[in-house]
């Protein structure tokens, strides 16, 4: 999947593209400058002592002061006050990040090895692409089908683990009409680092249109083969099936239509419209021999027109 880079807002941080980003960055800069001051405050005396008290002779007179209770109390109390302050700075931003506004748009999010599936309130589904309206709070209700994953959008400054067997939530309100990237940040296996997805932020009206028609802003309905080509990328077929004949997780799509494949149970099958359709809906029924039965079902995730489009596209991959 081609993803646009994460844009930087400063030397350290990505751009701030959500409502809570600014507060988190402020907290970050508070501790950053505090650290810089403390570090300089430690290193300058260190350097000075190294210079000032460098040994001159073997009989240098050394200080016989072994402790100072006043100093000990001072450098216990002052840092204590500072870190308690830091705790409250951290707590306040975090409280906002934890409590979603009541009017948030709820999107059901499922993570699995190695893709993200988003189900919108009207039943629409998108895979490896999260589409959200700008200027509206969005709450993701997340769960995992297999192992731990974690949802992280650097530009939004939000992160939350996705745990099997329980629901976790995360919310954000996007402020920039721009694409960005979400990462999986909890190690989940071989494909962990490919478990990225695009976050598309668009105007509310465009979002509504997309929900209605599946068309992105400025898009016209595509001919089937081209729609199929797009689906190949957006629905992560490309993570497992190559176009150039190389072997990834699954059989290559190069010349797949019309090919005769050996099935794991010993029979063989000719790849035609029905086999492709069946493989999308019940992928592990007839698995090509020598490949692991790991493909997730696309039942309910692809519309009839999408399946037709994919078939049309596969006919063109030679």
């Amino acid at each position: 999947m081609r993803l646009d880079p994460i844009e930087l807002g400063s030397f350290w941080m990505p751009k701030q593209s959500s409502t809570i980003a600014q507060e988190i960055d402020t907290a970050w800069y508070i501790v950053y400058w505090l650290d810089v001051v403390m570090f300089v405050g430690l290193m300058v005396p260190l350097a000075y002592f190294m210079y000032r008290y460098k040994r001159r002779t073997a009989k240098d007179k050394v200080s016989d002061v072994t402790h100072s209770t006043t100093l000990e109390i001072t450098w216990t109390i002052i840092p204590s006050i500072m870190v308690i302050g830091l705790f409250f700075v951290g707590l306040s931003g975090w409280m906002k990040a934890m409590v979603a506004p009541g009017n948030a748009l709820e999107i059901r999010t499922t993570a699995e090895m190695y893709m993200w599936t988003f189900t919108y309130p009207n039943g629409n589904v998108s895979v490896n692409e999260l589409v959200v309206p700008k200027g509206q709070p969005v709450k993701l209700i997340m769960s995992s089908k297999d192992v731990l994953h974690s949802f992280f959008v650097p530009e939004f400054r939000v992160k939350q683990d996705v745990v099997p067997g329980t629901y976790t939530t995360v919310w954000f309100e996007a402020t920039e009409n721009r694409d960005t990237i979400l990462f999986c940040t909890e190690y989940c296996g071989v494909g962990h680092s490919d478990m990225m997805a695009r976050v598309r932020v668009m105007e509310k009206a465009d979002y509504d249109t997309w929900q209605e028609t599946g068309l992105m802003p400025g898009e016209k309905p595509l001919p089937p083969a081209e729609l199929g080509k797009k689906l190949y990328a957006t629905r992560s077929c490309n993570t497992c099936h190559s176009l150039d004949g190389s072997r990834i997780q699954g059989p290559t799509f190069k010349g797949v239509f019309g090919r005769t494949e050996q099935i794991a149970d010993g029979t063989s099958v000719k790849v035609d419209e029905n086999y492709i359709r069946e493989s999308l809906l019940e992928p592990n029924k007839k698995v090509v021999s020598g490949y692991p039965a790991v493909m997730p079902t696309y039942k309910g995730l692809l519309k009839e027109t999408d399946i037709d489009a994919l078939i049309a596209y596969l006919k063109t991959v030679q």
């Binding site: 970050w28 650290d35 870190v83 700075v89 707590l91 931003g93 990040a97 939000v158 909890e186």
Partner: peptide
Amino acid sequence: LTGLFLGMLSVDLHLHD
């Protein structure tokens, strides 16, 4: 000192992992 960043709840949201 960089541990202080990670101890802060809100900043850890961004920096964790």
